[in-house]
Amino acid sequence: MLSAAAASVALTENGLVTPAAAQEGKFVWAATGGAWSEQLTSSFVKGTKFAGPTTTQSAQLESIAASKILSSNGRPEYSASNHGNAEVALLQAGSALQPYDLSTVTNFADIRDSAKLGTDYAAFCLLIFGLAWNTKEAKKPTSFMDMWKPEYKGRIGVPAYGYYGMYWLHALNKIMGGTEDDVTPALKVVSKLVREQQAVMIENSDHTARLFEQGEIVMGPWWSGRIIRLKEQGQPIGFEYVPGTLAVGSGFVIPKGAPQPQLANEFINGTLDPQRQAAFAALTRYPPTNKKTVLDEKYKDVALPESAEANFVKLDWAKISATRAKNLELWNKEVL
């Protein structure tokens, strides 16, 4: 009886009531708020047809947006929603996405294949999750395994499971010869790192920045864009494309049944445009996905070095997403 009630509540919450924005013919794009949303607006909204009052941004965590899409029974509030590869895989598994209209998304053909998941998703940038290190207090690392060196005991940052720890665990597992089906090899070593070598759990990017700044940690996996910006500010921080480095896309998907699908396709085509991607890369220092994008000379750091791509780990995002709950339980019980 209770589950029936829950189902009916879900219906009234999400199915029967048409979101106000959709009724008014508004175009709603969803993304995380804060600096990220400002950078997106500046690169992909300003100076386009989407700059007007009929466009609104819905700001919440990407995972919350994914939950809302999944529980919307085919009547989502968003025309386009910003996600990384793993969540896109989750949404695909829930049959919650509709493919791009390639006659509108003409830039799709120029996007590098590693940034695509079928025709449901093409990332507008690559977020590179490699190894960050303090250039004054640590030695230049060549592998994630440098984090286990005894001299760094208590001064290593490990991403919390909810903050990219899940992806990093799989990346580490892969380079240790494991597969997405069994993360035991990586769990064992991360457990040692956290429990015996007292690595510090990091919860988000601001937290990481603060811990590096305060000298709490001297090494840990982190995003390339943030590191490049800190380096430019004069901080003693370096970034290495060590083996197992993650290249995670960030891009927009169109939820199945989305209001204004035509506008959604046009908006997404804009995010894949070489000039706009160049502007976004200049703002965030994250490399673009469109092969035709030409970066300003100033941002040569941002472009991926030839050697880097060989170190990128290839992951089965659908499997990772399907096992996220099970692996969280393992992480909580064996690592923490």
């Binding site: 209770l2 029936a4 189902a7 999944l70 989750l90 399907a322």
Partner: peptide, 25 residues
């Protein structure tokens, strides 16, 4: 009351990914 009721209802439903919850008690 409604959110509490929904929370109680969801807590008795079986987790069936990728859906948030299912109608199985």
């Amino acid at each position: 009351g409604a959110p509490v009721f929904i929370l109680v209802a969801i807590s008795f439903s079986k987790h069936a990914p990728p859906a948030m919850w299912s109608s199985i008690l």
